[in-house]
Design a protein around this nucleic acid. Structure first.
Length: 887
RNA sequence: GGGCGAUUAGCUCAGCGGGAGAGCGUCCCCUUUACACGGGGAGGGUCGGCGGUUCGAAUCCGUCAUCGCCCACCA
């Protein structure tokens, strides 16, 4: 385009990306209203924590969401991506408590109301920080529809779900063994507990028999809990201990007699085959305790110190008495922190001669996935959801094929988790979150209601009181995020959004929360909306460093895309580089920054191809149109054919979540096919008439195909080219019907490429400088094939002469083109080539002589092999002739 | 203890039944008016080991080894 200011030589993402993002916001292209006339395409963004920062995992999980939304929008669908944040109860409260501490304040000192006021302040001030990162990465969700798990509407949905489940008998209150985080001062669900390998000891302790006998030796990793032992269990068939079953042994130091019982949960081969039973501090022991009706005293308090004995439920007085009677002897340990207590108790047991053996041992300790504190299993009065009837339909949805996982194998993670599900502890002792809609009368009658007014009515009608106190606990964060795909659409109101955009087409997430989150959305969606929340779950790979270690702050190997990648490679380079490394079947992505660097250079490369097209002296056409087919050259027909194939492949890849394949294909076409070959070919004189239109047409379609991956450079190029519409974001996906394909011509041009590569290779080996022209002979039969001869002359920088001969197909005649040189290196080269071809011919002949091959291999394969052999044979003859001619 | 994944060029990976590939790195040539954030060329691999299926295996099956992930109530 003459007169246009010259385009800068280097593409500058830092300048382009923020400008174009702002432009998209100004144009309002990310916002959609539900439109039943178009197919829906909707993704619920997994809500990041308000305490969260963008990390590389967002690159691999959120970029595909942005990509798919952009792609489906270009396909003309009613596509929307709804963003939002999660209040992240425990994580946020921990941040706040830490902040208060710097001011010398405490949560309890502040009081609930003021604490929550501070929390909301914090949320307003810092809670949106991640959005800026997302915008810098080019993510284009529908910001107008942004939701927060503690919005009034979403909170109302939470209350309704709680009340409904309670009234249906699926929520109950009870004393159970729960996972207690002494650091966060709250319970955690099983799914939020991780196991970490730790080096410790297996301590062997002798419990003497009450009658003065040897008794037995138990093995334990948690000696401090022996204060709350109520039995020793052995396997019923274990002959070693049969004589002790039903008798008592005595706990050392504190002299309490406990029974030896038989239970099949005991593994005779582990340790000594005898296990101490502490029902209030261990899951297995708890189950044994239930089976045998044992008392369940606790010795570890909520703050992680020894306290004796605590009865957290209504224990029968006679069961309590024997234990309470010995409490005085535990006094030395009361108030000690749990790990200090362990040390002290081990020393005392050693001194008392009860410690038989101290064996180094590696074990897994339960750790909070949030605070990383060691979890204390504790007996506590909490609220639970009965999961079985919720899990059944969710399991059925998967088994019937209605719910699909990509890759498939992750379905088994989901299935296994649901099939073995336990009741879900949903009450938390933090203040930041959805407070339980539960009130108590002075007589501790429980009232569950939508609000206080309703609770009062119930209180008066049922219990004749209006004096109520509300349960201080809040709900597990996952209780509200489990409603996300429908609560963000307005549920329980019957909104147009809910009608059109539920269910979602796809949920994209990482595999560590398949059970924690995905299964809860399915269970609650099925129960409350009556439909699956999504049809497909796409599971993205986890991101590791080059050494294969998980990225983590503590290891110091975490890569922050905002500081480490975007400034160096731009958002496009970052996105392209990450997607390039994604493979469907791979469950880990060893992040290699070199892919981002390559992607950045790719953007520059495309940018320069644009500069070339814009600088053509004939100028670009005013619109995106192809010349009539009969005027297209061999090279034109080839690039159009390749473009069509590329668009098809990329489309298939996007549809199948094969983002790495899509990125590979685009890079291959853009860099090698378009820039290295087609652009170079257009420098031949015969390309003059059509090149501007074809260059522009192909680049225009190409950047549209690449736009979902790299939104900015594609838009900047598209806006510079002839185009229709205001922005590439709402442009249409390249229409295959408008990209013609010419298989025969494309094949002939491929032969040109092959020949040019051979000629360049010869030039390099013969030491002919790039400036010098190479002498090349074409068969006379190629005279008049300007598309071929011009391309050869230009691409190989050759001076053409003809020689007599050459017949056969166009491809064969092209391959008969030969370089002329009179150096000794030519002999070397022909000799080497003859040897190579002889071995190829021999391999091929052997294969074809194999009766099994000819008889059993498919006809296509055999025919292709025959054709290959013929080609090799012809080439071999030519090289032999050439060699002979040198003599 | 179960389940899953990985093992291909120095590095990161693609290919997944019919002639071993890419990028980066290495070596050589080139500032040719789109691009040196570039172009051209070269070298580099018994496709983890061993068996099996097949006319044919990097590709399918078995087995072993190494690494990694997930699940589980061996205290």
């Amino acid at each position: 385009m003459n007169g246009r200011p010259e385009l800068p030589k280097h593409y500058d993402p830092d300048e382009v990306e923020p400008r174009l993002y702002r432009r998209s916001l100004d144009l309002g292209v990310f916002h959609e209203e539900p439109d039943p006339a178009r197919p829906p395409f909707i993704i619920s963004m997994p809500p990041p924590n308000i305490t969260g920062r963008a990390h590389l995992g967002h690159g691999s999980t959120y970029t595909p969401m942005d990509l798919l939304t952009r792609y489906h929008r270009m396909l003309g669908e009613n596509a929307d991506w709804i963003p939002g944040q999660d209040h992240a109860a425990i994580a946020t409260e921990a941040v706040l408590v830490r902040e208060l501490a710097t001011e010398g304040l405490t949560r309890d000192g502040l009081g609930r109301e003021q604490f929550l006021a501070r929390a909301w302040e914090w949320r307003e001030k810092y809670g949106y920080a991640i959005n800026e990162s997302f915008q810098r990465l080019g993510f284009g969700p529908d910001w107008a529809r942004e939701r927060f798990t503690m919005d009034p509407g979403l909170s109302a949905a939470v209350v309704k779900v709680f009340v409904d489940l309670y009234r249906d008998g699926l929520i109950y209150r009870g004393t159970r063994l729960v996972n207690w985080d002494p650091k966060a001062q709250s319970t955690l669900s099983d799914a939020e507990v991780e196991n970490e390998e730790r080096d410790t000891f297996l301590w062997h302790l002798r419990y003497r028999a009450e009658d003065g006998g040897e008794g037995l030796v138990i093995a334990t990793t948690r000696p401090e809990t022996y204060l709350a032992d109520v039995a020793v269990a052995v396997h019923p068939d274990d002959a070693r201990y049969a004589h002790l079953i039903g008798k008592n042994v005595v706990l050392p130091l504190i002299d309490r007699a406990i029974p030896v019982i038989a239970d099949a949960a005991v593994e005779s081969t582990f340790g000594t085959g005898a296990v101490k039973v502490t029902p209030a501090h261990d899951q297995t022991d708890y189950e044994i305790g239930q089976r045998h009706g044992l008392p369940m005293p606790t010795v570890i308090d909520f703050d992680g110190t020894i306290a004796v004995p605590l009865w957290r439920y209504d224990e029968a007085p006679e069961k309590r008495a024997a234990i309470d009677a010995q409490s005085a002897k535990m006094q030395p340990y009361v108030g000690l922190e749990r790990f200090a207590a362990r040390k002290r108790i081990v020393e005392d047991l050693r001194a008392a001669g009860a410690l038989v053996k101290e064996e180094p041992y590696q074990t897994k300790v339960p750790v909070s996935s949030r605070s990383h504190a060691v979890i204390e299993p504790l007996l506590s009065l909490q609220w639970f959801v009965r999961m079985e009837s919720l899990a059944q339909p969710a399991l059925e949805a998967y088994r019937s094929g209605a719910l699909r996982f990509v890759p498939e194998r992750f379905g088994r993670t989901y299935e296994y988790g649901l099939a073995n599900i336990r009741d879900w502890n949903i009450s938390r002792q933090v203040w930041w979150g959805h407070q339980l809609p539960v009130w108590y009368t002075p007589a501790d009658d429980v009232i569950v209601a939508h609000d206080e007014a309703e609770a009062l009515v119930i209180a008066q009608e049922r219990y004749g009181t209006s004096e109520l106190r509300r349960d201080p606990d809040t709900l597990d964060t996952w209780f509200s995020s489990g409603l996300w795909p429908f609560s963000i659409l307005g549920w329980p109101e019957q909104t147009p959004e809910l009608a059109h955009w539920y269910p979602n087409q796809v949920m994209i997430t990482s595999r560590d929360i398949i059970f924690l989150w995905v299964s809860r959305m399915v269970m609650l969606g099925l129960r409350f909306v009556g439909k699956l929340p999504f049809e497909t779950v796409f599971v993205t790979p986890l991101v590791f460093d080059l050494q294969g270690r998980k990225m983590s702050k503590s290891l110091g190997n975490a890569i922050d895309p905002m500081t480490d990648l975007v400034p160096k490679y731009g958002a496009d380079g970052t996105r392209f580089g990450i997607l390039r490394q994604m493979r469907l079947e791979s469950q880990e992505l060893r992040f290699d920054e070199r892919y981002c660097d390559e992607a950045k250079r790719f953007a520059t490369k495309l940018w320069n191809a644009l500069r070339y097209a814009c600088a053509l002296e004939e100028g670009l056409p005013g619109a995106t149109v192809l010349p009539p087919h009969d005027r297209l050259t061999l090279a034109d027909k080839w690039i159009l054919t390749e473009l069509r194939r590329t668009v098809e492949t990329v489309q298939r890849a996007y549809d199948g979540f094969e983002f790495g394949v899509a990125a590979d294909t685009l890079l291959q076409f853009g860099w090698y096919t378009y820039c290295d070959w087609y652009v170079e070919a257009t420098k031949a004189p015969t390309q003059r008439a059509t090149r501007a239109a074809v260059l522009s047409f192909v680049l225009n379609a190409f950047v549209r195909a690449m736009h979902p991956i790299a939104p900015f450079v594609t838009e900047e190029i598209w806006l510079t080219l002839p185009h229709d519409g205001a922005t590439i974001v709402t442009a249409s996906w390249p229409d295959l019907a408008e990209i013609p394909a010419f298989p025969a011509e494309a094949d002939a041009f491929r032969a040109v490429i092959e020949k040019v590569e051979q000629l360049r290779n010869a030039r390099a080996e013969w030491g002919i400088a790039p400036k010098e022209t190479l002498r090349v002979e074409i068969p006379a039969s190629l005279q008049g094939e300007d598309g071929v001869t011009d391309a050869i002359a230009t691409l190989a920088r050759a001076e053409l002469a003809t020689y007599d001969g050459g017949d056969g197909t166009l491809r064969e005649r092209i391959l008969a083109i030969r370089a002329v040189a009179d150096t000794g290196k030519l002999r070397e080269r022909y000799t080497r080539e003859v040897a190579r071809l002889e071995s190829e011919v021999a391999r091929s002949e052997k294969k074809l002589a194999n009766e099994g091959f000819v008889a059993k291999a498919s006809a296509d394969v055999v025919a292709a092999e025959r054709a290959k052999l013929a080609d090799y044979q012809r080439e071999l003859d030519r090289n032999r002739d050439a060699l002979a001619a040198l003599v």
